[in-house]
Design a protein around this nucleic acid. Structure first.
Lengths: 230, 230
DNA sequence: TATAAAACAGACCGGTTGTCCTGTTTTGTC
DNA sequence: GACAAAACAGGACAACCGGTCTGTTTTATA
């Protein structure tokens, strides 16, 4: 991983301009990108400093540890990415089904024109960090939960309008997120986003029938005892 | 990560018994476990040596580099895990749908009694290593392909028996693998395997209807140009 | 048994990593 | 302007990592 110097010509070592917010944003930009492209462990702070053009002191000032930086990336960037690419388009859509379809196709189209697949930021970090540290896991699990809730809420809204009365909101949300996550995993590994469309086609049929409604299936909200020390 | 010493009492520095196969297997056992529990980068060779009770010389003799060890784990262990937990039960089942259901429920039951979720070995490594090295990516992509093909072949076998004539084999295979992978991702992050059952319920409805058959949907087997240098 | 290759042991090394530490400069506040 | 805190620079450092190297022991072969 190398970086453009991005140094504006400084003919004089004149003055320095303190821009804490801008510097913090620059670091987060670089870290978000590197974490997704190379992963957390494979991205060294030296790489990030070089790529962002930031000194070690500045980096340490804003993010005391690498873990703190990663948590900031998760809380501020990964969550925002899910919000931007999934939740917002979903809420803007006329129905869940149209929203899900729009997201899948938008992502597929973007990846096709982009020429490579770097995967879902959330899943990338979730796989690498969920078992590494409880703080990471909780932060990532929260994003998954928000994602699912946005979908299930939209299903319920549709149902209030008389549509999709047969589908269980929580179940469909879990299925949609799982399908997308798994499809992105395969697309990344195969470097071929076409599997996204295959999965969308199958997913769209799932919300169709209205069988086995009855009383809402009881939910299993049990949480496991303890996740095995690392 | 620490390891029990696993040293049988050696009152005398008597003799040494060369057991290359056994030693190789021991290293692979430990590496497979560590790679899944901690990931590739977070597992140091020192950890593995200590956990396996193997000297540096022996490790290097069997696996010249860490990458070679990981490739062996992928080719011999991860592929076998997919074969054992997915493909074999699927082939043994009476139909695809029963097979998929059996696998999902078996894994869910195992995780529930196990008390924690370490995730899918294939997906764990795929997320961390697919973009890190082409050799890793190709090896992992091959396992995904075999997995999908086993499912689609089973669908075709069912169709030859007159069942599920409406479902596209490739599409269903992609959907099944994606759903499982994504569900495991969420289960791992939330440390709660119940999402597996939610996703299974949704997936089972998807293979139901027999709409939009017609000529088999044309497949998009395009491969992307180049996956962006690491 | 002679001998070479395989199997293994254990120390060693250059490079890297994350973090800390000491200064210097800027900025807000009275 | 005085002064303290924030913002930033850059070096130092100990720990660690992966790979290599040399040497010893076992094993296969003749």
């Amino acid at each position: 991983m190398s970086a453009e110097m991005n140094v504006q010509s400084k003919p004089r070592p004149r003055k320095r301009i303190n821009d804490p917010e801008g510097m913090r944003k620059k670091v987060l930009d670089v870290a978000e990108d590197a974490f997704q492209a190379c992963g957390y462990h494979a991205s060294s702070l030296g790489d990030l400093m070089a790529a962002a053009g930031v000194s070690g002191g500045a980096l340490h000032h804003h993010f005391p540890t690498k873990k703190a930086l990663a948590l900031a990336v998760i809380d501020e960037r990964v969550a925002a990415a899910v919000e931007q690419t999934w939740i917002a388009p979903l809420l803007a859509a006329a129905s869940v089904r149209e929203g899900v379809r729009a997201v899948f196709e938008a992502v597929a189209a973007e990846l096709e024109q982009q020429g490579f697949v770097r995967g879902c930021p959330l899943n990338n970090l979730a796989h690498e960090l969920s078992l590494a540290d409880p703080d990471f896991r909780i932060a990532l699990a929260g994003i998954f939960a928000d994602w699912r809730r946005a979908i299930s809420d939209k299903v319920r809204a549709d149902q209030r309008a008389g549509r999709d009365e047969g589908t269980d909101p929580e179940r469909f949300a879990a299925l949609a997120v799982a399908t997308y996550s798994g499809a992105m995993s395969m697309a990344k590994t195969a470097q071929d986003p076409s599997v996204l469309r295959d999965c969308l086609a199958g997913l769209e049929r799932s919300a169709l029938s209205s069988s086995q409604g009855g009383l809402a299936a009881r939910r299993r909200r049990r949480v496991l005892p303890r996740p095995r020390t690392l």
